[in-house]
Structures are given as C-alpha cells and as structure tokens.
C-alpha cells in the first residue's frame, strides 16, 4: 500500500523529493542520493527530464523500491504513444509501483536530442483517463485486462501561471479525469499559491507545492530564462544577490515557502538539486 496515499488520505503533511536517473548504467549514486532522502514519504523519479535522455524511470523506480524507498514514477507523453504508455503502466504495476505523476513532458527542442520526433499521441489529461481506464479493468480499446493495476495517480499544475482561468480549467479537467493528487511546478509567490489553493480546495485533491532551493542569483536568472513555467520574482533575486552566502539565503527562502505551504497545502515537493543535506533546515520551523 502506497504510503503517499495513506498519509495524504490521513491528512498528514507530506514531503516528497526527486531524483533523476543517470545518463548511463551506473545507478549506485542515484540510489545513494535516494537513501539520503529516506525521511521523505516518496521520491519522484523523473522521465527524461528537460527532454534529456537518461536511463528508464521505470527501471530506476524499481531499483528504489528494491532499496526500500517508495517511488513516484513520472511518465510523460513526449516519448511514447498510447500503446507504449499503457504497456509501461502495466509493467510498472507488475513491479509493484503504485504512485504515478502523469505529465505532458517538455518539448524535445529543449533537450539533448532536439532532432527527435516528439510523440504527444496523448496529452496529460488523456493519460490520466487512460490510467483510470486501466484501473477499471480494460485497456483504451475496451479489451479486458488479466490482472488490474491499482495506481495512485497524480498530475502537475503551475499555480502561478496566467491567465489564472486558463490554467485552472486544465486543473479542473485533471481532477475530473481522476487525478488523485497534485505536485506543482516550483512556486515562489505566496500570494499566488494562496489564491490558487482557495480555488483548488473545494475540488478536494491534495496539493504538494513545489519548493526549489535557489543556490544563487545567477541560478534564479537561469531558471527564469530557461525553465518553462518557473518565475523567480525580482525581490528574491535581489536577496540572493545581497547575501554573503547565497546558498544560506536560498535555504531561508525555501524555508519561508515551506511555511506558506504548511498553512494552505497538503504537502511540499522539494527540489534541492544536489544539496539534499540542507533539507532538514528547509523543513525546520
């Protein structure tokens, strides 16, 4: 039974983090990083994140499970058509993976294989529907399954996106299509998170707010210029710039954001990018 599901159902504040599979076959370092994150409820395993080709997340998630760590398998629509997605989902279930995060996926143009043909046979809403179809015992063509998967399927949302209504209609569609929980894109604006949660709360799905550890003003500017859907406000960039130890300031900023989410969200998803050792400080207080 998924701990993530249990804790969110029980209303416990949940903390998740993420790892990216390696580019290559050496998986020991990633498993070790995941072990350091053993205080988390579950660990997301990214799927060719940023459209950069890496080892299969299904394999990485299985290795985490074998190490006693609960994974959240991320699955994107960029690299697989509906047959490959269903096939991988059945495989994941057979390997004991329950938690999913279903995404459209970054466009291949961003990654290390810009010449690849992006698939997008389904979008994230349709992938959620496909998962729920499998859970109801048939595939997308209505054929009966011999052995039915039981997933805890989540989806992503960008609470700070404008126009709000346009972003929120998709959130609503994801809820209606069976999303059981949400993890958000990195958020930095408390007001916008609170506004989003005020609208999202009546729909009754737990939301884990994305909190990203900023290392420096340079990193913040890089995120603003290169990572779709992430916006670090100028005021925070200024704080990082003025700080003598920018990483410490970044930890402080992350801690403030966690405090906001404790009040209005059901959990937090930490993105610490190599500074996993600072997580206790971010969660303190």
């Amino acid at each position: 039974m998924s701990q993530l599901r249990e804790r969110l159902t029980a209303g416990t504040f949940v903390v998740t983090a993420e790892i990216a599979p390696p580019k290559g076959t050496q998986v020991a370092a990633e498993v070790e990083t995941a072990r350091q994150l053993s205080g988390m409820t579950a660990i997301n395993v990214t799927d060719n994140q940023g459209a950069n080709m890496r080892l299969s997340p299904l394999v990485m998630a299985t290795l985490l499970r074998q190490a006693g760590i609960e994974p959240i398998l991320q699955l994107t629509c960029r690299d697989r058509n509906r047959m490959a997605l269903q096939s991988d989902l059945l495989g994941a279930a057979a390997l004991g993976i329950e938690n999913l995060l279903l995404l459209s996926g970054d466009h291949a143009r961003f990654g290390d294989h810009p010449q690849a043909r992006s698939v997008f046979d389904l979008d994230s809403v349709q992938l959620l529907q496909a998962v729920n179809t499998l859970m109801a015992g048939t595939d997308m063509s209505g054929k009966k399954l011999d052995g039915v998967p039981a997933f805890f399927a989540g989806a992503a949302v960008s609470p700070e996106m404008e126009p709000f209504e346009l972003m929120f209609q998709k959130y609503r569609k994801k809820v209606e299509s069976g999303a059981a929980f949400f993890q958000t894109q990195a958020v930095f604006d408390a007001g916008k998170v609170e506004r989003f949660m005020a609208e999202a709360r009546p729909l009754g799905r737990p939301v884990l707010a994305g909190v990203l550890l900023l290392r420096s003003a340079g990193m913040a500017r890089f995120l603003n210029a290169n990572i779709p859907g992430v916006h670090v406000p100028d005021a925070l960039i200024e704080r990082l710039e003025k700080a003598t130890k920018p990483l410490d300031e970044g930890v402080l900023i992350a801690r403030e954001m966690v405090a906001v989410t404790r009040d209005c969200c059901q959990g937090v998803h930490l993105m610490t990018l190599g500074h996993e050792g600072r997580i206790p400080e971010i969660l303190a207080g």
Binding site: R109, F120, D123, S124, S158, M161, L166, M167, K173
Partner: peptide
Amino acid sequence: AKGLLNGPCGGMENGRCET
C-alpha cells in the same frame, strides 16, 4: 507545439509558447 487537446501545457508564459 505539442498538439495538446485539453488546454495549455505548464510552459505557457504571457501567452507565449515555451518552445
């Protein structure tokens, strides 16, 4: 750019495409 059918992806910014 992704041929999505149920609304924008998370990369839309100020009405512009992430790509």
